[in-house]
Amino acid sequence: MSSLRRRLLVGLHWRRLLQYFLQGLVVIAPIGITAYAVYFLFNSVDTILPDLTNKLFPNLMGVDENGLPRRIPGLGFVVVIVIVMLIGRISSSFFVGKLVDVVDTILEKTPGIKFIYSSVKDFFEAFAGNKKKFDKPVLVNVDADDVWRIGFITQEDASHFDLMEHVTVYVPHSYAISGITYFVPKTRVKSLHINSAEAMKFVVSGGVTHLE
């Protein structure tokens, strides 16, 4: 076997091994990252109740052999989820809703606190709740005439910026949590008749996700 042919076979062998490695990475990485994210979230929420109970009632649960608050795995997670759901249910009632509005108004007018509170509140309301903002996916033309981006209308009226025939459109970036806000003429926006979650997933994935 000639030296050149031997080198070609060795190169082909290594390229095939590299291809197997990358293919395995494609399979393992999403599963591993998802599993770690779920584990981290579960573990973080699950420790809230034992830590809080230990601070309020030091002798109630006791401690383990390492001196840490004793806990039943999964119990804290379930209790926290139930409490959040109960708060959501109670806040839907008229009187509690009014009370929440009063507290909301106070926090939004408190110097120093209002910036943090309003920013966090607006972020969560953009994705969930009765006032979620990213529920109107559109195609928006902000570059060349025949180039379109996927975005979400967040404000139908931009008149407070002296832009009478414009709408506010948020355009998310791919593989990131950032994005850009545009004021766009209504004539350069087209409605998308797809689920907003599917539209967001399509953008964040760089367009590789299949739309259902």
Rank of each mutant, 00 (worst) to 15 (best):
F123Y: 06
P172W: 12
G97E: 11
I72W: 14
I177A: 13
G67H: 12
G97C: 09
A144Y: 00
D145E: 08
S44M: 02
R5T: 13
F77S: 14
V147P: 01
D162N: 15
L86R: 02
T34G: 06
I106L: 11
K131T: 13
M200E: 02
L52G: 01
A37D: 00
T154D: 06
A144E: 02
G24F: 09
D122K: 15
L4C: 08
H13I: 10
G24V: 01
G76T: 05
F40Q: 02
T34A: 09
G206F: 14
V184G: 12
H193T: 04
T53L: 04
A35Q: 01
T53S: 05
I48F: 09
S205A: 11
T110E: 08
A37N: 00
R89E: 14
Y170T: 09
V84E: 15
V147H: 07
I81W: 01
V138Y: 00
G112K: 03
R7V: 12
E212T: 07
L192A: 05
Y170Q: 06
V120R: 06
D157T: 09
R16K: 13
D46P: 04
A126S: 15
A35D: 01
K131S: 15
K98F: 10
K132S: 15
Y175I: 00
N43M: 07
R5L: 13
K98H: 07
